[in-house]
Design a protein around this nucleic acid. Sequence first.
DNA 1: CGACCTGTTGATTCTGCTCAATCAACGTGG
DNA 2: CCACGTTGATTGAGCAGAATCAACAGGTCG
Lengths: 214, 214
Amino acid sequence: MHIQSTFRAERTTVEGTRVSAMPAGMQPAPVTFYPADELIYAQGDTAGPLYMVEFGTVRICRVSADGRRQITGFLTAGDVFGFEAAGQHDSFAESVDGAGVRVLRPATGQEPTATILQMALRCLARTQQQLMLLGCRSANVKMASFLFDLSEQQGDRRVVHLAMQRNDIADYLGMTFETVSRTLRFLKDEGIVRLKTISAIEILDRRALELMCE
Amino acid sequence: MHIQSTFRAERTTVEGTRVSAMPAGMQPAPVTFYPADELIYAQGDTAGPLYMVEFGTVRICRVSADGRRQITGFLTAGDVFGFEAAGQHDSFAESVDGAGVRVLRPATGQEPTATILQMALRCLARTQQQLMLLGCRSANVKMASFLFDLSEQQGDRRVVHLAMQRNDIADYLGMTFETVSRTLRFLKDEGIVRLKTISAIEILDRRALELMCE
DNA sequence: CGACCTGTTGATTCTGCTCAATCAACGTGG
DNA sequence: CCACGTTGATTGAGCAGAATCAACAGGTCG
């Protein structure tokens, strides 16, 4: 939203930005800016380099043959993505709200597989955690967990910022955007959250939110 | 079922069995047999060694605080499991039907991280694939995909063997075991499969099954 | 201002969960 | 050998929750 409108520029290369620490054995590379909804890599592209988010949010998606989209993850500053088992990407990555992304190149003479393994394992753990979320049936619980995770990720701030829109949340949680709206309304009616703006959600009762996730 | 009743023995160590190839940089270790439903490692156990399935089926599970169980994967011969980002397992592994498991120890003087990374990435890809499954709404489609994957895994044989029982399938697909029954009945009524026995499903119309998965 | 996009809300439908009964297979003990 | 209990699977009835379809509100941009 706000970010989207302030960064109206075409994709640009920003030198010198250094938000997050470089992983061991990796060479610094320039940051590339992707405006909202821009593709970073496509399904079928040859995989190879890893990417690190410097700022903004990136979504990793898959589409099934019937056109349905599943978002397998939202990534923010410091997160690494681009892992592939085969030689080709079978997911694709897009900027959500205008994101800065840095390509990670292995430093010459180094073997950073240990570092990469660490990052891949974190990615795996996160994906498995999301499996639990999708497996549980209640839409309200899904949304509560989503907000709680987001809040944690943003440093337990009282006001959570939603970088993505309802549609994205829906495809992430495996429900429709109407249901996203309704679950937010439910949480509001329960006095657990307050919608300051459309993308800023104030957590009024963190305890209750946590209890919902169980 | 059958396997369970033939292998009534306590957990034993079988020497010399060598069903699948040893990954590069790994030392052979004896095969341990786990009877049906026996724990291989628990949630909270210190992680470290990797395991490879030699025969039988292993399930990886998580339980949420409200007691719900999510099975994040079924593993068969040749599959490797035990990956953890942190020092502790936050999933647990159990034998489904009586399984032989081999601990993988890094060969001395070698750095098998490249091999391990490869395996972890395959595990990640599979988990993401399952995310797509759980995200799609129809129970019938979930079951169709499950059967199709299983058939593929078992070498496209006409008769698919279900090593796990309905309860396990339900917790894997995020539904109840009653619904598992009903979806199987649906596929039967459509003339797509035939239930030879309770654990042997004959695929009558592979084309239709594939179309359902899309 | 009007077109458009995103989000919210309402009405209706339908899928899958819950509760419950029944059945088949198996093991046990009289 | 048969009555009984247990466990896993199937099936049915009723209901709750989420999807679908549709209308509408608010904001942004041309």
